[in-house]
Simulated assay, not measured.
Amino acid sequence: MKRQSGEASVRGKTGGDKKVRVIACGMIAREVLAVNAQLRHDHVDLKCIDANYHHHPERIAPAVERAILRARQEGYRHIFIGYADCGTGGQLDRVCADHGVERIEGPHCFSFYLGNEAFAAEADEMMTTFFITDFLARHFEAFLVKPLGLDRFPELRSTYFGHYERALYLAQTDDPELERKARDAADCLGLPYERRMTGYGDLSAALAEL
């Protein structure tokens, strides 16, 4: 499955007879699969929406709606949305309400990885924090540097990131190689580096209810 290009489906052992369709952001596809493996879920069919839509959040809700309609056509009665609001300004919630489905609670994945309650308790400090997840550590160059043109115009770094005071790596896994990449990303942005081991946070509880 290509997690950054287009929409892709990942089916488990029982293929098309899955009982729950999870429509999720490509940025958390690996994590959804990992949590489902921990839970020993064999009834979940994962549909991934292009991770690059995070650069164009106005595209997220329409893409999710299309995916919901396709899932209904394929016979899925139970659908869960693997997105927080993610910059849609409530548009995703309206789509969920229109189709009678639920999504992961929270404003974005950084919040539900840390835990929505914990994130809210630190809201003031988080305003000047640049977040790195396992996904962004893996794909920093392709997902952030090149789309923003920082490889060609490094002077843009201060324009995009000058108001941030730190880079905080919210680690889903304890992987030394990913931590090295996260440190490199912070250095690239000229930000002090911090790390917290969060695991999958509220994502685990949300998927457990499936």
Rank of each mutant, 00 (worst) to 15 (best):
D50T: 06
T14E: 05
A142Q: 11
A118C: 03
G87K: 13
K47M: 10
F153R: 14
A29E: 08
A63Y: 04
G115T: 04
Q73R: 15
H139Y: 07
A167G: 08
C86M: 12
L136Y: 04
E165S: 13
G26K: 06
N36Y: 01
G82P: 12
H43T: 14
R183V: 12
E177M: 06
A61F: 05
K13A: 13
A208K: 14
R70D: 12
E209T: 15
D175T: 05
R103E: 01
K181E: 09
A121K: 15
P107F: 04
A123E: 13
R94E: 15
E117N: 08
G106T: 01
N36K: 04
R72L: 12
A34P: 01
I81E: 09
R157Y: 01
L69M: 11
D124H: 11
G190M: 09
D124T: 14
P192L: 12
A205M: 10
H139A: 02
Q172L: 03
P107D: 09
F130G: 03
G199F: 01
R40A: 14
A71E: 05
P147H: 11
Q38K: 14
M27R: 14
R103L: 01
Y164S: 00
R59F: 08
G106F: 03
Y193T: 14
F143G: 01
R11A: 13
Y113T: 05
C86E: 10
E31P: 01
I28T: 06
Y113R: 13
Y83M: 11
A185I: 05
V10Q: 04
A121L: 07
D42Y: 07
R3I: 14
M197T: 03
M27Q: 15
H139L: 02
G82H: 14
L189Y: 08
R152E: 15
L168E: 07
V145I: 15
L156A: 06
Y169M: 04
G190V: 08
R30P: 00
R196F: 06
F119L: 03
V101A: 02
I81W: 05
G90Y: 00
E31R: 04
A208L: 05
M197E: 08
L191T: 04
P107G: 08
H55E: 02
G15H: 09
A121W: 07
L207M: 09
S158A: 14
A142Y: 00
Q73V: 13
P62Q: 10
P176C: 06
H41S: 15
Y53A: 09
Y53E: 08
N36S: 11
C109G: 02
E177Y: 03
E165P: 02
E125R: 14
D45R: 14
H108V: 03
G6Y: 04
F140L: 03
E58F: 03
G201H: 07
A97S: 06
I132M: 10
G201M: 04
I132L: 15
E74L: 14
A8Q: 11
G82Y: 14
